[in-house]
Design a protein around this nucleic acid. Structure first.
Lengths: 186, 186
DNA sequence: CAGTATATGGTACGACTGTTTCAACAATGG
DNA sequence: CCATTGTTGAAACAGTCGTACCATATACTG
């Protein structure tokens, strides 16, 4: 009896809201412009997600899910030497198509630093973005429980991403990765 | 004729406002709470700085100035081997006392990525933070116009700072820097 | 003293925010 | 048909935001 619920609508809205956040950032996110861009109303956003907080959480989870999926699709899992994998990951994550994701990662990270109370699952929300990548380099470790080399590799990727997004100097950052690969050979 | 202007008040306000921003972050900065914390009024903040935008610009400039000063004081300029300097810089910038500055750097960087229009002097506002550090490593370059090695060194510092601020795992990040120093010896 | 400049408090405006309330509509089951 | 349940629009609420306006207090010069 009664009209049946429509969970598909909520998911469709979530997908488009994630697009919007990836395009416009989290910082100034407001329900009314978001709803207008999605062809819906603030009323419906709250109806579907309960509150803005939960909407944001859902969007971040969705973005994380997308990133992980894209990564799994485009990385040759365990094949190739560590250096080849490192180059592949850098080429993939530094590509312009990934820029919205990179921006969002930096945004969540920075906001989490200033306002940790908004991110109860901060470890999950931020770290996991890179954990998937870091896992790829576990076998670079000299001993099974060595976490230092993966940490360094991930630091180079993150640091070069910071540089690239700030300066836009792809040539210089690409060559810096080359230099790091040289160093890793020893 | 007339009451003389009091530029000292503006500078005192700027100093305390910078303290406040370093403590609370840029994200949710609002004139009324800021004024209350400073024992003044929004009215006076606008009287002194003209607009919130200019206040923020002034605060960022002041924070940059402070960072540069502290850096100049605590780094043994050109003395020591590159490795010693790198270790010194890491120890200095990763110290808890620098955490507010590091947070602010990441915050400005992230906000600049999503909303570049707010940072017409983005290169100055963000890059310069690290440029002072990067300059210290110019002599690591293999040739005079080699910018790649300094880029890599700065990337490691930035990337490890990202890691440290996210995970708080000082031991692992410290050891990752050790590992990088080892690699650099070759 | 008057005149003139800066300094400051109080208040309100208009635009925004997330959220709520109330009413109406749509689609299904009995 | 009717009752029930999910869906949706319009409007309003209470709050915050940056900022502007107006009056007044303060401190100096002549």
């Amino acid at each position: 009896m009664g009209r049946p619920p429509d969970p598909a609508r909520r998911e469709a809205t979530l997908a488009r809201a994630t697009d919007y956040v990836l395009a416009h950032g989290l910082a100034g996110l407001s329900l009314r412009p978001l709803a207008a861009a999605l062809g819906t109303s603030p009323r419906m956003l709250l109806y579907d997600f309960g509150s803005k907080q939960e909407l944001v959480s859902s969007v971040l989870a969705e973005a994380r899910r997308r990133g992980a999926t894209r990564l799994a699709e485009n990385l040759p899992s365990e094949a190739g030497s560590p250096e080849e994998r490192l180059r592949g990951i850098w080429a993939w994550i530094s590509a312009p198509e990934r820029a919205p994701y990179v921006r969002l990662i930096f945004e969540v990270h920075a906001d989490g630093l200033a306002h940790p109370e908004n991110y109860p699952d901060r470890a999950e929300a931020i770290t996991n973005w890179f954990d998937t990548l870091g896992a790829t380099f576990r076998d670079i470790a000299t001993t099974p429980d060595d976490t230092v080399t993966p940490t360094l590799v991930m630091a180079v990727i993150r640091g070069l991403l910071f540089d690239l997004t700030t300066t836009g100097d792809r040539h210089r950052t690409d060559r810096a990765l080359d230099r790091f690969c040289e160093l890793l050979r020893y």
